[in-house]
């Protein structure tokens, strides 16, 4: 079973309780900035009266995990894409790779690393909801099993189609994400990326990388074999040269 969040923009009042709880649960330094940073993992933005949360989407097949050269980022079976600051070397490859622009860099540090929402992996492992969902006073952020959240999102659109745009953001984006969103206005107007590919991005490189071991193996054996045969023929020919001279 994997968990996730459902954020319903139409129920959000922008009180900021999610940001406050996130800071507290993850021991992040204050203040709460007006955009996500390496120290502020979630914020609520007001876009023309509509409220939209910024946080990691926790892709089913995360590009950040795929590109991280030291495996500092990992997708857990429970759903969260977790992050090990001890392993991070600060290369920023994940920042380049993320289709949603989520990971942020500690630009103020002499030896910076990356920071992003980890879906309260510690709390989730204890059976608790994420901090943001636990404190939300309107139920705009719901925590639950991913499948049931997706059904709930589709049910809400079907029940009140005039209240929502017919789009569950995160259902298909980048191959599906653990965080789902509903809104009354098109997501592009809320500053969300709508050109995200529908298939998992790690597939792009996996299609090539997965063939490399067999490629190296087959060509390695083949070329070594040709080299051995050629070399052997030269040695034999050199060895037999005096005999051929004698016979002449």
């Amino acid at each position: 079973m994997s968990v996730g969040l459902l954020f319903d923009s139409t129920r959000c009042i922008g009180c900021g309780a999610c940001s406050a709880a996130c800071k507290e649960a993850n021991d992040l330094p204050l203040p709460i900035e007006d955009h996500t940073t390496a120290y502020t993992w979630t914020v609520v933005e007001d876009v023309g009266g509509a409220k939209i949360r910024r946080l990691c989407f926790h892709c089913a097949e995360p590009t950040c995990v795929s590109v991280c050269p030291v495996a500092a980022l990992q997708k857990t079976a429970a759903g969260p894409v977790v992050y090990d600051p001890q392993r991070c070397i600060g290369c920023r490859y994940c920042i380049m790779a993320c289709p949603f622009g989520v990971p942020k860099y500690q630009w103020d540090q002499p030896v910076p690393i990356v920071g992003k929402c980890i879906l309260c992996a510690g709390r989730v492992a204890q059976g608790l909801p994420t901090a943001c969902a636990a404190v939300c006073p309107t139920g705009a952020t719901l925590f639950g099993e991913h499948g049931s959240l997706l059904r709930e999102a589709r049910k809400r659109i079907a029940a009140t189609p005039d209240r929502y745009v017919d789009h569950v953001y995160g259902a298909n984006e980048a191959g599906g994400t653990s965080v789902l969103m509903l809104a009354a206005v098109p997501f592009a107007e809320l500053g969300m990326k709508t050109d995200v590919p529908r298939q998992p991005l790690p597939l792009l490189t996996w299609n090539v990388l997965s063939k490399i071991p067999s490629f190296v193996g087959v060509w390695g054996v083949l070329l070594l074999g040709i080299h051995w045969i050629t070399k052997r023929r030269e040695e034999v020919s050199a060895y037999e040269a005096p005999q051929r001279e004698k016979e002449r």
Binding site: I13, G14, A17, S19, A20, A21, E24, L30
Partner: peptide, 21 residues
């Protein structure tokens, strides 16, 4: 208190009072 703080939970949390505890 919440209406007095402009419906902003962050007016007091978490700088003045923890929100989870």
């Amino acid at each position: 208190h919440v209406p007095l703080a402009g419906d902003r939970c962050v007016a007091c949390h978490p700088a003045l009072f923890p929100i989870l505890r």
